[in-house]
Simulated assay, not measured.
Amino acid sequence: MGIKVLVVDDSALIREVLGRMLVRDGDIDVVGTAVDPIDAREKIKALDPDVVTLDIEMPNMNGLAFLEKLMRLRPTPVVMVSTLTRKGASETLLALELGAVDFVAKPSAEFAGGLDAFGAGLRDKIRAAARSDVRGRAVRLEQPSSPVRTAAAPEGAVIAIGASTGGVEAIRTVLADLPADCPPVLIAQHMPAGFTGRFAARLDELCALEVVEAEDRLPLRPGHAYVARGDYHLRVERSSGQLKCRLGQEGPQSGHRPSVDVLFESVARTVGPLAVGAILTGMGRDGARGLKLMRDAGAHTVGQSQASALVYGMPRVAFEEGAVVEQAPLEQIASRLASALVKLKAAA
């Protein structure tokens, strides 16, 4: 039997559209649908789905309130189906903090012609969710992380971080542990347009660093982090003696835009041995090639360990291809990056 999915949405049309798309390749079975969280609660008990798709705005109980209860009482992989609005983006990020594995933007009238791409993306996210370790994550969240006192680095150093599925929480954990004296941080997280601005703003609230959505030609400054804009590649370049963000909309790399490979390759080329990099949770292989180029250029590279990764896909490929100097649990990654930077500073 394929991956068992329960679709939870108060819209009959959305339930039908999602159901039809999910079964297309034959490896996913929609074992049931629910119109609200009360209905969903009974069907989860009866059907024991591998993955639940969940709407946020529903009658009888908000999807976020239901998600919080589900993760506390019966941790289950959940993919949120979100609206592409400012409020929808904020609620989606809260859902990821509460334990949802991933999200898709709800198809709408302007999706005409893009439904096949939407369906393919949804199926990929369901497959990743089915392989994710949500029960392990619930335990790991209780592990204390290691806040870093200093990450002082030589002039021109940067930190580069890449992630996909599960990355919103993983990036938050790493950034929250980095001190304000660290060098510029560049982040490529697979996320569509409309969500990265809210993601950067949320990180900014939670971290000692100043976190912004990257803008083209924005100079890199210590104590600041730059999140790749949705649907744009992020690179670092040296111009007029300064390191700057460069945004571009060239074709997807490794299936993604923003692509972790594009960011890491530019860091390898422009920053070389003064960089440190981390590849975090995610499905697929994006970032492995770029991280290997960083390591070959003399950068210290860290991969998230299997036991701590929600989806051990991208870190596994990077490790197998020799791109990773060391693997570490999520709660130690900031301290490993800082330690490498302090050594660089001492050597300089």
Rank of each mutant, 00 (worst) to 15 (best):
M191H: 00
R217M: 03
A297E: 10
T92I: 14
L234N: 11
T85H: 04
P184Q: 02
K343D: 10
A297N: 09
R289C: 07
G272T: 02
K69V: 09
K69M: 13
A348H: 10
G113V: 07
K43E: 13
V30K: 02
D231N: 11
E42A: 12
V104W: 04
V317Q: 07
V267R: 02
L122Q: 06
L341S: 07
R295W: 08
R86K: 13
R257A: 10
R198C: 12
A34G: 08
R217Q: 12
E320Y: 05
G99Y: 03
D25W: 00
P329E: 13
R140E: 09
R74P: 01
V342G: 06
H233K: 00
L73Y: 12
A176S: 15
V31I: 14
R269G: 11
E250G: 15
G322N: 02
I28L: 04
V79Q: 06
P184S: 05
V101Y: 05
A95K: 10
L73Q: 13
A214R: 00
A268F: 04
A340R: 01
D296N: 04
K345L: 14
L220C: 03
I44N: 10
V168A: 15
V101H: 08
P49D: 07
A163D: 04
A347Y: 03
V139E: 11
M294G: 05
T173P: 04
D102V: 04
R74W: 07
T33V: 15
R246I: 11
Q189R: 00
F111C: 07
A34D: 06
K45A: 11
F195Q: 08
M1C: 14
K125Q: 01
Q143L: 15
R72E: 14
R149N: 12
G32Y: 09
L234W: 08
A138M: 07
E57I: 06
P222V: 11
M21Y: 14
R140W: 03
R24F: 09
F195L: 10
G241Y: 01
S164T: 06
L13C: 05
G119C: 04
A117T: 13
D116M: 00
R135D: 13
